[in-house]
Design a protein around this nucleic acid. Structure first.
Lengths: 192, 192
DNA sequence: CATATTTGGTACTGATCGGTAACAATGGTC
DNA sequence: GACCATTGTTACCGATCAGTACCAAATATG
């Protein structure tokens, strides 16, 4: 059994359910390997969670970065972000990063450091996106770039939480349209 | 040991930490009673959680209802709600109801029913508040009362989650000011 | 071929979980 | 005093947890 295959199975288990409900025993059973084998590869549950989170970030969060970096203007980019967040079929069980972050106190030092690292990267990505839009005169408002970045990040997190809780796609989209409408001074378009 | 005293201890334990991290053993230890004693009173962990949630709703969520019912106009009421949510010292560890709701899948049938019941009541309270404001011509926008109620409810939940995670009061207030600014149509229009 | 190292497994440790059987003390009722 | 229901206790149950000691096959290296 390949290490990355085991890691994928662990990542998906943590992702589909809740990390707090997935035990090391369960992952071994899912991956069809023994416990000492897993411990030899990842060292501890903390190491496994950290590695799964790392793989997740490389595989999923980079998509969000791509969306933010390629948009032509503020509105189109936000629309693409809303589209991805509310409808992407891979995210029907929410976002593993936000699941881990919401249960921070249960993580070991490695997974905790990984969460903080990803959090900082995400904040930086949102921040530089908003800064670029402000520099381009695309987002005038009185709101600071820092506050906007945190707000945007947390609204996306909320939307993923809603998706994980089973809220239907259109409701998630409506709520995101509302919450992100603060970025556009003009009225929002009705939902399609 | 009085039953309500035990219930208060359990409620505060669930409230201060996370319900998923508080075991029946821990509550017995905190309350200074034995396990069979607790089980005779509450039947099961499910019954205890349900009772604790019930007590919490009567004790805390009624405050939110009061804030919503006594406001003179939309803006003043929302400001009072933001003030309470972001600064009330009792809510520094978040809202027990939302903590329970976010771990729904771990609850037994009684606590689950209680969560759903409180959720419905909360939605109704937010809904009738917004409906009254719409009838009074205080909130014209194109947003439906139902969507507004859900949005409002979830933004408050997010704010409580942020408080529980240790985010400072002023940051929570700034985010709430932003997210609830969608309710005031008199917003500035810098540019179209 | 012989040796050493890695890779796999079985089967355990001690701890904690929710829940309960069995017993002791208490207190009201006649 | 005799009786009985309630309240509290200690000490256990089986299950599950994260983590590990130990063995067995395989594979690489000389």
């Amino acid at each position: 059994m390949d290490n990355t295959a085991v890691l994928d199975i662990a990542m998906n288990a943590y992702w589909q359910a809740d990390p707090v409900d997935i035990s090391v025993n369960k992952i071994c059973q899912l991956a069809g390997i023994s416990k000492p084998s897993l411990y030899r590869t990842f060292g501890s549950e903390d190491g496994l969670k950290s590695a799964a989170l790392d793989r997740y970030a490389a595989q999923v969060l980079s998509q969000i970065s791509a969306i933010l970096l390629q948009g032509a203007n503020l509105r189109d980019t936000l629309d693409a972000l809303i589209e991805f967040t509310s409808t992407d079929p891979r995210m029907t069980t929410g976002c593993l990063f936000y699941k881990m972050r919401s249960g921070k106190h249960r993580l070991g030092p490695k997974a905790l450091a990984k969460v903080d690292q990803i959090d900082a990267v995400a904040r930086a990505v949102y921040g530089s996106f908003l800064q670029a839009r402000r520099d381009a005169g695309d987002w005038p408002g009185p709101v600071s770039v820092e506050l906007g970045a945190k707000y945007l990040s947390e609204q996306i997190a909320l939307a993923f939480t809603h998706r994980a809780s089973g809220l239907d796609t259109s409701a998630v989209r409506q709520m995101l349209d509302l919450s992100l409408s603060i970025f556009q001074p003009v009225a929002s378009k009705p939902q399609s």
